[in-house]
């Protein structure tokens, strides 16, 4: 059972719009990781990982082995470069639709 329960059906539509709409799959050029990406503008980027992609990312595997690492949180530079490439190739549309 959900804990914070919406009282309107439209709230679930909103949830879907903000979390799922227009995500485009992008594959890392260096490893097997595949993520879903959305860009609302040139400077905005959303990256949705899966558990599988997270364990495929060699950069994260390396970092996870280090103790107490604060830098585990930082994005993987290789994946970010792959996303930039996909944007340049026109595979990831740039622009928002009504705030999402």
């Amino acid at each position: 059972m959900a804990s914070f329960v919406p009282t309107s059906e439209e709230t679930l539509d909103d949830l879907r719009h903000y979390t799922e709409d227009r995500l485009v799959e992008v594959a890392c050029l260096d490893c097997l990781a595949r993520v879903r990406v959305k860009k609302n503008s040139d400077h905005q980027t959303s990256v949705q990982w899966t558990a599988e992609a997270r364990s495929d990312c060699q950069e994260f595997v390396r970092r996870d082995q280090r103790p107490g690492g604060r830098d585990v949180h930082k994005p993987c530079a290789r994946l970010m470069a792959s996303i930039d490439d996909a944007v340049r190739a026109g595979d990831v549309p740039v622009g928002a639709y009504d705030g999402y």
């Binding site: 959900a2 503008s41 400077h43 959303s46 990256v47 990982w49 997270r54 994005p75």
Partner: peptide
């Protein structure tokens, strides 16, 4: 939620850079 009801999307990594 109960541990058994934790969905993948709740714990999957998500990155967001604000413009």
């Amino acid at each position: 939620v109960d541990v058994a009801d934790v969905k993948p999307e709740m714990v999957d990594r998500f990155e967001f850079e604000v413009d």
